[in-house]
């Protein structure tokens, strides 16, 4: 069976390592990007099954990147989970307005992230 591929975009080395460890141990392939622009390029090049986007990133933030992903033909239907340090309503609403499918808050809760990933793309 083909393993599902997930694109992680975050400028935090710690967050990237954490998410990559959790996802690769759960049999997902992982590719990474360090900012919003790189995330869009990687999304087009790698055609992942899911994108996990941090909100605060250099060059282009997660909201802007998500908006761009929704405009591009090759990426518009790829599910997106936003990662934010802020769980308040307006931050979450912003994410859904730009087209994300779900969100998680930092610090990352492993079971919660994996559960949301499985809900969107399966095992």
């Amino acid at each position: 069976m083909t393993r599902k591929k997930i694109l992680l975009a975050d400028d935090s080395a710690t967050a990237l390592t954490m998410e990559r460890t959790l996802l690769s141990r759960s049999d997902y392939d992982v590719v990474v990007a360090r900012d919003g622009r790189e995330a869009i390029k990687q999304a087009v090049d790698e055609n992942p099954d899911l994108i996990i986007l941090d909100v605060v990133m250099p060059n282009m933030d997660g909201f802007e990147a998500c908006r761009e992903l929704r405009k591009l033909e090759p990426t518009r239907d790829i599910p997106v989970i936003m990662v934010t340090t802020r769980g308040e309503g307006h931050h979450v609403e912003n994410g859904f307005e730009v087209g994300c499918n779900d969100y998680v808050t930092k610090p990352i809760n492993g079971p919660e992230l994996l559960s949301k990933v499985r809900n969107l793309i399966g095992e």
Binding site: A13, T14, T17, T21
Partner: peptide, 30 residues
């Protein structure tokens, strides 16, 4: 994984600025 990543991140740097950034990253992210 949190504990392993924190240790790894702290000892992966040769300069003080990077170590301080790692401590901040660990506190924020983990």
């Amino acid at each position: 994984a949190s504990l392993y990543i924190a240790v790894n991140s702290l000892h992966a740097a040769l300069d003080r600025t990077s170590v301080l950034a790692s401590v901040q990253d660990v506190v924020t992210t983990l």
